[in-house]
Design a protein around this nucleic acid. Structure first.
Length: 338
DNA sequence: AACCCTTACAACCGCGTCTTC
DNA sequence: AGAAGACGCGGTTGTAAGGGT
């Protein structure tokens, strides 16, 4: 059955925010008569509103049993748990939270919980860890202090005196160690994952000597360039200021398929794979990386991404986490050699 | 001080489902 | 059984408030 309009178009009923006077009229009427038929209520209550608007105002705002104020941590937990099982069934979720309305929970989810989960690296839709390439790169950007929407897309990995992470030699060591670990992981991912194809990749994996080489480059700096295109993030390249350049770009870009989105590396749903040429001349199938595909030959392994992500999640959660790590590490002497 | 951007939340819209006749 | 009316849900939009530049 098609939609039945609640109120006639151009019928002159008021829309928009409710006034205190309207609230009072509605509350007074319902407290005396009950709401009865919402369609006829406005006329009876002396309101120039449509019944639907009255119902919404009552159920979401005026009802006496509505609980106002901040959501507690316990409520957060309940919402997240219920959402993982029920999805966007806000009214059902609201049924488990006395005093909270579906609209309030929906808004709270969209403005708070959703962001919180995303920051934690959890996909708010699936409630599973996020594994998309953009997310990982954004985490990397965040760690390295590169504003994701900055017009200046050049980030400084080493030697940034403005970065509190490298304020002292001890902290410098720890920060560098962490960043090296991140880069190592990222490069290993690129090396092992045919979904990503590097342009002019000279080496995929940094060994200790290479790391030292990077760090002992012309000026001791390592740059991370965040390539931007019309559709946003397009990749990274690593550059120590001399001739060592590592380009890390999404697979699609190297094939000039600019209308494609960056593929999810571990997809929850099967996707069509494509054969890609690797820099060593071999080719492999960028097959669907579903949970059922555990073939050792499938280089789209989720293992590295998971460890990478775990690492990011553990190391990047908050500034205070960093502080703790740095404080702890400051008691440790740096190794004499790599 | 003025403008712009972001955030939070109230309210609206359109559709599916339920109820009544 | 089916048509019409009413209700409820979930997605989307509008806007006020606050913060940043």
């Amino acid at each position: 059955m098609g939609r039945v309009p609640c109120c006639e178009e151009n019928s002159g009923v008021k829309k928009g925010p409710w006034t205190a006077e309207e609230d009072e009229k509605l509350m007074e009427y319902i407290s005396k008569q009950g709401h009865g038929s919402w369609r006829t209520l406005p006329k009876k209550a002396g309101l120039n509103r449509c019944g639907k608007s009255c119902r919404l105002r009552w159920t979401n705002y005026l009802r006496p049993d509505i609980k106002r104020g901040k959501f507690s941590e316990e409520e957060d937990r309940i919402i997240i748990n219920l959402h993982s099982g029920l999805g966007n069934k806000w009214s059902k979720i609201a049924g488990h939270l006395p005093g909270r309305t579906d609209n309030e929970i929906k808004n709270y989810w969209n403005t708070h919980i959703r962001k919180k989960l995303l920051q934690m690296g959890i996909d708010p839709e699936t409630h599973k860890p996020r594994t998309d390439f953009n997310h990982l790169l954004n985490n990397l950007s965040h760690l390295l202090g590169i504003p994701s929407s900055s017009s200046n897309n050049m980030g400084l990995l080493w030697g940034n005196i403005n970065n509190p992470l490298v304020a002292s030699s001890q902290l410098d060591f720890t920060a560098q160690l962490t960043k090296i670990q991140l880069l190592q992981n990222l490069l290993q991912i690129v090396d092992s994952n045919p979904c990503l194809l590097g342009n002019n990749i000279k080496n995929h994996t940094l060994n200790p000597l290479q790391i030292q080489s990077f760090m002992n480059g012309t000026n001791g700096l390592l740059f991370l360039t965040q390539a931007q295109g019309g559709s946003g993030l397009e990749g990274f390249s690593l550059n120590n200021g001399s001739d060592n350049i590592y380009n890390i770009i999404p697979h699609h870009q190297s094939h000039h398929q600019s209308d494609m989105t960056i593929p999810a590396l571990v997809s929850a749903s099967p996707v069509t794979g494509s054969a890609v040429k690797r820099t060593d001349g071999s080719s492999c199938n960028a097959a669907p990386a579903s949970s059922t595909d555990q073939s050792p030959n499938n280089n789209c392994s989720s293992v590295l991404f998971e460890s990478w992500e775990n690492f990011l999640d553990e190391e990047m959660m908050t500034g205070s986490d960093w502080k703790e790590i740095l404080e702890l590490s400051s008691t440790l002497a740096p190794p004499t050699s790599w």
